[in-house]
Simulated assay, not measured.
Amino acid sequence: MAVRVVFIGGLGRSGTTLLERLLGEMPGVTPLGEVVHLWERGVCSREPCGCGEPFTSCAFWRRVGLRAFGGWSPGLADRVLTLRRRVDRTRHIPALARRRCRVGLSGYTRAYTRVYEAAAQVAAAPVVVDSSKHASLAFCLSTSPVVDLSVVHLVRDPRAVAHSWDRRVSRPENGARMTRWRPWRTSLHWVVQNLAFELLARRGGRVIRVRYEDLLADPRSVLGALLADLRLDGGDLPFLRPGLAELSKSHTCAGNPMRFRAGPLQLARDDSWSDHLAWRHRWLVTALTWPLMLQYGYRVRDRHAAEPVPEPAAGPWLTTGVTAQECR
């Protein structure tokens, strides 16, 4: 029996952790964090789970490990990381899109499948959410015959993403600095990752596009529309209040520091880039990304607003631009 997986994809600093936390409040849905980092940060480094306990001490993840592999071990993590280096790379996406399976791909996806299945059983929830983001992993998972995969492609204005990647942010797990990228590098990654998810949709993958700005402008409507596309019953979303989301504790293995938050969380767009991103960086990012910016409804010259997403062209794939305007 296939396990239902909602994979949140997009470039980091686009709101993927926030969207995962919101989806994780749905009945029957279990958020797992960025499973791609489970092996190194969880099993090997024993970084904290979203509940605050070290990964190997968390009762939830101990039960998942026992059910999936008979327990977590550094040897298991090393084997999966070795396979990841062989098959889960952006440069392999063209081959994966043509279904040219690489050596080790089935073993690599089997490790993720066992985690998903065990987590769904331990949590007694039929749907798991993986916010690993990487398009290459989404392509790998799309080859698995036992994963019922839905991809939520989260898009954010590249200028905001570039500003976020250029900031100095500490990781609460270990006090280390989060990775920083210069604006030109962020721009290139933004284009490549988003084009990769477009390719996955064209190759028949179930891909639902959501914009960060629309999600924060009207969380109830946008989330409700997304749940309908995912065939999930969200009810009346009781955890949402005007400008706030009431979050419960979650067992997420990696991700943005927001994964540790519990209780009320203010839902407000971070538009600090409009005041703090240097003009030379603003125009560099725009010059490198403007074709996709326009396709996704972002204005080249406007400092704050974003245009409504244009109607997607008809095709055999699903790529839905969910906007606040369309959901009203």
Rank of each mutant, 00 (worst) to 15 (best):
75 G>H: 10
16 T>W: 02
73 S>V: 03
80 V>N: 08
110 R>K: 08
250 S>F: 14
141 L>R: 06
86 R>I: 08
127 V>T: 12
293 M>W: 00
261 R>F: 14
114 R>Y: 06
222 V>G: 06
233 D>Q: 01
119 A>F: 06
292 L>I: 04
199 L>R: 14
322 V>E: 03
302 D>L: 04
15 G>Y: 09
256 N>S: 15
223 L>Y: 12
270 D>K: 11
265 L>T: 06
256 N>Q: 14
36 V>H: 09
308 P>F: 04
159 R>Q: 01
140 C>Y: 06
33 G>P: 02
71 G>N: 00
32 L>W: 00
118 A>R: 01
25 E>F: 14
112 Y>M: 02
251 H>N: 14
173 E>D: 13
88 D>V: 07
101 C>E: 06
74 P>Q: 02
32 L>R: 01
61 W>R: 05
252 T>S: 11
128 V>C: 03
75 G>E: 09
266 Q>E: 12
255 G>I: 00
104 G>N: 05
247 L>A: 11
92 H>I: 12
4 R>Q: 05
312 P>C: 01
149 L>E: 06
20 E>F: 02
166 D>K: 12
131 S>H: 10
88 D>R: 01
164 S>L: 05
230 L>C: 03
206 R>G: 10
170 S>Q: 15
98 R>F: 06
198 E>P: 08
302 D>G: 08
319 T>P: 08
67 R>P: 07
73 S>Y: 06
146 V>M: 10
224 G>E: 15
309 V>I: 13
317 W>Q: 13
88 D>K: 01
43 V>T: 06
293 M>C: 01
80 V>M: 07
2 A>M: 12
191 V>P: 07
233 D>A: 06
4 R>Y: 01
86 R>H: 11
61 W>Q: 01
275 D>E: 11
60 F>A: 02
70 G>T: 05
286 T>A: 10
76 L>I: 00
193 Q>N: 12
274 S>F: 14
110 R>W: 12
285 V>D: 03
195 L>D: 04
155 V>G: 01
82 T>G: 10
325 Q>F: 14
158 P>W: 08
275 D>A: 15
127 V>F: 00
253 C>Q: 03
151 V>K: 05
257 P>H: 11
124 A>L: 12
157 D>L: 12
240 L>D: 04
288 L>Q: 00
243 G>V: 10
248 S>D: 02
224 G>A: 15
208 I>P: 07
300 V>M: 07
202 R>S: 13
190 W>E: 07
